[in-house]
């Protein structure tokens, strides 16, 4: 029993040593999206999100990223649209206040370029997404950028009269530009 405990403790410590933890600099980071309305693309952002990042370029297997987004913090520079986005037809914030992004695997695809396979959960629906991103680490500060296009209707975002893509396009480009400090 003691041996098992020692083993588990050692394993836990080993994982902690292998993958560094990162803390996102909120003021220098952006998590947002581009959606289209009546044929024109507009930009929006989520002002509040939290992250748990364990990332080590030398230990991608032990690396993991989890982002939790507070949907009600959406800002599309239009108060009308922001309040509409949180209603039942769209994100249904009263029922599903958060969206989450949880990586399953992260692989290196080139110099400073990676691919994350992750579960993206929005409005209670989970879909696997492939997110390519770039990453540079300089003096203990990581800078990651990436973008993934998702189908909003696959997540049930836009119900009823909004399910058709005539006015609000189905494709939404979710992007992030994050800066994080090594802990």
């Amino acid at each position: 029993m003691l041996r098992l405990f020692t083993f588990l403790t050692t394993l836990l410590m080993a994982t902690q040593v292998m993958a560094a933890d990162w803390s996102v600099r909120k003021e220098d980071s952006k998590l947002g999206f581009f959606a289209t309305q009546a044929g024109a693309e507009f930009e929006g952002a989520f002002k509040t999100f939290s992250s748990e990042i364990r990332f080590d370029v030398n230990d991608l297997a032990g690396s993991e990223v989890k982002i939790t987004i507070d949907i009600a913090s959406v800002d599309t520079q239009s108060a009308d649209r922001d309040s509409n986005i949180t209603t039942q037809d769209w994100f249904y914030v009263s029922e599903y206040p958060n969206a989450t992004f949880q990586t399953k695997t992260i692989t290196k695809v080139g110099e400073g370029r990676y691919l994350a396979i992750a579960d993206l959960t929005m409005r209670g629906v989970t879909k696997e997404v492939e997110l390519p991103f770039t990453l540079t680490i300089d003096a203990g500060v990581a800078h990651a950028q990436g973008e993934v296009t998702v189908s909003r209707t696959a997540f049930g975002i836009g119900q009823g009269q909004w399910a058709a893509n005539t006015v609000v396009g189905d494709d939404v480009r979710i992007f992030f530009d994050l800066k994080a400090d090594a802990q």
Partner: peptide
């Protein structure tokens, strides 16, 4: 100003 950019006939 409302961040509803204008698309001209798509």
């Amino acid at each position: 100003a409302a961040n509803y950019p204008v698309s001209v006939f798509g």
